[in-house]
Computed example of a mutant assay.
Amino acid sequence: MKKLVLTGAAGRLGSYLREPLAKMCDTLVSTDIVDDIGTLYDGETYAKGDLASLDDMMRVLEGADMVVHMGAYADEGPFEKLLGPNFVGAYNIWEAAYQRGLKRVVYGSSIHAVGMHPKTDFIDTEVRHRPDTFYGLAKCFAEDLGSMYWDKRGLESVHMRILSCAQVTNARALGSWLSYDDLIQLTQRSIETPVTGFSVVYGVSNNDRAPVDNSKASFLGYRPKDNAEQFADKILAETGPLDSQDKGHMCHGGPFASVELGNSGVATMNIVDDTKKI
């Protein structure tokens, strides 16, 4: 592959994708809104760009084969705050990809697109959208956008519906954890699979307690290797009784399912910032 583009390259998940993606192509163009992302990997270049600007996305996607779209405002917030980067940004990626003749968009979607489904439901990739926040609503929008651009314009997309890609620090993560190695594998399979059409796959590791059914996405060849059960004894020993009336414990979206619309979900979570440094 000649050229890949990675949006959200300055983010935590983007930091783990940069090196393996750079090895898959002649040129990796990493992009974000920061001035620079420091030391670059072999074959990697950096282009500052604003997702809310179609002109910027047209510029960074020129000559690309595919784009891995991980850029977004990565939390719940007022609708107006998410409108530019998350809603308009998704449109700009798909429209620029179409105009530039890309084959596929690989998108960092989220469990929050279906976050209000109860965890007692073993949901598959065809379950109806049931967003838990404006953030989740933006993921629904991008998934539907991808479906429409495939049906109407023949632009493929794989929507990696990530559950939780961070260190395991709570009981929910025993089921929802996606390790960084499995994130890399999932992204690589989403790029390498010859034909995907419009596809949705859950981004989750091989956890004993995984609450979702990924079988309909098996054609991608994604076979996660890590299992959060290794953390279970420690986490459960530290966890007190959970409130069965709290939607944050009972719904797939976790804390995002219980916060008021517009209020941060990340603020209620103990996410360790282990952004990869070169």
Rank of each mutant, 00 (worst) to 15 (best):
L102V: 08
P78C: 04
S147V: 13
L21D: 04
H159N: 15
F198Y: 14
D144A: 14
A228F: 05
Q99H: 14
L54E: 04
D144V: 13
R12I: 12
V200T: 03
R172F: 10
R59S: 07
L21A: 03
T45F: 11
K216Q: 14
L17G: 13
T45R: 15
T187I: 01
N92T: 09
A96Q: 10
T268Y: 01
S15F: 07
L21Y: 00
I184L: 05
G14V: 05
S109N: 00
Y46N: 02
F87E: 07
N207R: 02
L83S: 04
S205W: 10
T120R: 01
D124Y: 06
G71H: 01
F87Y: 14
M116N: 15
G49W: 08
V266M: 08
E126Y: 13
G71V: 06
W150K: 10
A210E: 10
N207G: 06
S110V: 01
A9Y: 00
R189G: 07
L51G: 05
G101D: 11
S179I: 04
M58L: 15
I191M: 10
N86W: 01
D36L: 09
V68Y: 08
D36S: 15
P131N: 15
G43W: 09
I37R: 13
E19D: 13
H249M: 11
E156V: 09
N92K: 12
G136K: 05
K216E: 06
I271W: 06
A142I: 03
Y46P: 02
D65C: 08
D65W: 09
S190E: 01
V60N: 08
G8T: 02
M148N: 11
D65S: 15
A97H: 11
S53T: 12
G77R: 04
S109G: 11
D75V: 00
N170I: 09
P194S: 07
M57G: 01
T133A: 01
D132L: 06
E260K: 06
E95L: 14
V259W: 02
S205F: 03
D273S: 03
A257E: 03
R189V: 03
A74Y: 13
L61R: 14
G49Q: 00
E156S: 06
Y180G: 03
A64L: 01
E192F: 07
H117Q: 00
S190M: 01
G71L: 07
G203I: 06
M250P: 07
D35I: 01
N206L: 10
R161T: 11
D233T: 11
D50K: 12
A9I: 00
G89M: 07
F231I: 14
L54C: 05
G197M: 04
I162E: 07
Y222W: 14
N207T: 09
K247R: 14
G101E: 11
S258A: 15
S258L: 05
E156R: 07
H159F: 10
D213V: 08
I191V: 12
Y91E: 11
Q99L: 15
F231P: 13
D42E: 15
S218W: 02
K81E: 04
G84I: 05
Y16P: 01
